[in-house]
Design a protein around this nucleic acid. Structure first.
Length: 155
DNA sequence: GCCAACGTTGGC
DNA sequence: GCCAACGTTGGC
């Protein structure tokens, strides 16, 4: 299967590019997603080797800041079983987990972040789910969109 | 911090 | 199966 592309949003106050750079192997488990549509992509859609646009949400302005690569896919989010975790979900059972994660490894930091206003202002990017439908923290990106965004970012 | 968009939940 | 209530997301 051809390599596919995704955009993953994270609030940098919780987990941002600086955290990822500091992580062991520059790799992190992408936990905490609690939206079913996003969950389905994490569980069923994303494959090892797929490309990731790392996006800082809740930032001024929000922006794509780096590319990353998927290094492990589709396993249960351990935080859902942890009563002390903010991600705890009492409805999750070990044998029937509700929430899933992938592992991503930092690839390249963009030379200049590609901001949401910039994306909105780019005619070729009008079909991005980021624009068409907000509030989805895991979303597919086309190969064309990937190429345009990374180019705007100076890669 | 507000609130709009959207999805899930649950009473009936 | 409808739909109002509720929770989450995320731009502003």
């Amino acid at each position: 299967m051809a390599r596919r592309y995704w955009l993953l949003k994270s609030d940098p106050d919780t987990f941002g590019i600086e955290h990822l750079k500091a992580a062991r192997d520059r790799t992190t488990m992408w936990d905490g997603v609690r939206n079913f549509q996003a969950r389905n992509y994490l569980r069923d859609g994303i494959a090892v080797g797929d490309g990731v646009l790392f996006y800082h949400s809740q930032w001024k302005p929000p922006a794509v800041v780096a590319t990353a690569r998927v290094v492990r896919t589709g396993y249960p989010d351990p935080t859902q079983f942890d009563p002390r975790s903010p991600g705890h979900d009492p409805r999750s059972k070990r044998e029937a987990p509700r929430w899933f994660v992938v592992d991503v490894q930092l690839d390249r930091e963009l030379k200049c972040p590609v901001t949401l206003p910039q994306i909105r202002a780019t005619p070729e990017l009008q079909e991005m789910i980021l624009i068409r439908r907000g509030r989805l923290s895991v979303q597919p990106v086309t190969a064309d969109e990937w190429r345009i965004v990374t180019r705007l970012g100076g890669l």
